[in-house]
Amino acid sequence: MAQPVRRQDLRPMGASAPALVRVENVVKHFPVGFGTTVKAVDGVSFEIRQGETLGLVGESGCGKSTLGRLVAQLLPVTSGRVFLDDVELTRLRGEKLRQQRRELQIIFQDPFASLDPRMTVGDIIAEPLVNFRVMRGKKLNARVQELLRVVGLNPYFNNRYPHEFSGGQRQRIGIARALALNPRLIVCDEAISALDVSIQAQIVNLLEDLQREFRLTYLFIAHDLSVVRHISDRVMVMYLGKIVEIADSLEIYNRPKHPYTKALLSAIPVPDPRVQRGKRLIELTGEIPSPINPPSGCRFHTRCPIARLPTPCAEVEPQLEDKVRGHMAACHFSQEV
């Protein structure tokens, strides 16, 4: 909270860092009765590199939160594989999977719902340490107080209950809990969306500081592309259960290669009247189709301003492929975007 604020570039160790997490062709279908399924995540592959922040954006219902939980192993996959280093997480069950949870933590969206109201803040932060029998007694207490200090809270607050704290403070508690086991990957699932603007900046800065200090890797999920772009090294855009684009966060703004990304960028309001008034909105026609019965071919073709119908867009599914070095998009006509 009180680190001196320095203007500095926080770009991380570089794009060549090895992969920490590999996601291969992961599918998650939720049965909704009468033999129909919601295809929440429908075949996605990507990797998260050691020490980077990978942003994941998309609109409500695109499957981004589900994907986050699949990576964090809070939901079982329908098919596909998730690796942490060389360990295939999706094959583990029971105690073996539980042991891997030390490496994977998650920060939730709702700081009011994600803390057990019947537990003290100290017990909440200590829980992972107790569950894995890492430490106990005085040492445990000291660690909890240290974690509280790390996230910018008064270390003597450990006897208090969550409802005595504001939204921003609760989110700091959730972050302290996620840090307790020194995890390698933290999934931030809309971790700042529920907070006020001025508090959002505090938490974003805290996450950045912690990443540097503890060499953390983040999967940062949010619907707000401006925040995601700010915090992420690379940004991944999801639409209707599929990844449509992955690119460096600077690149994705300057040269989007998927028409959906472009429309999304044009829709984000910029806090600058001159820029905002001069902006041209790329209006998407129609509504997001149902994930129960997604469109054939390219899932975006029903709303795409540059789609060529019926073929190839409505018939051939475009693959997510390298368009420029390290810039992947799933579009037949990405050169026209």
Partner: peptide, 25 residues
């Protein structure tokens, strides 16, 4: 002034640390 400086902009050309307002309302 500080609120405007604490908002990340989607059209930012380079990464700069957000200048957050400390404390709470």
């Amino acid at each position: 002034w500080s609120l405007l400086r604490s908002i990340p902009r989607v059209d930012a050309v380079r990464h700069e640390r957000l200048r957050s307002i400390e404390g709470m309302a």
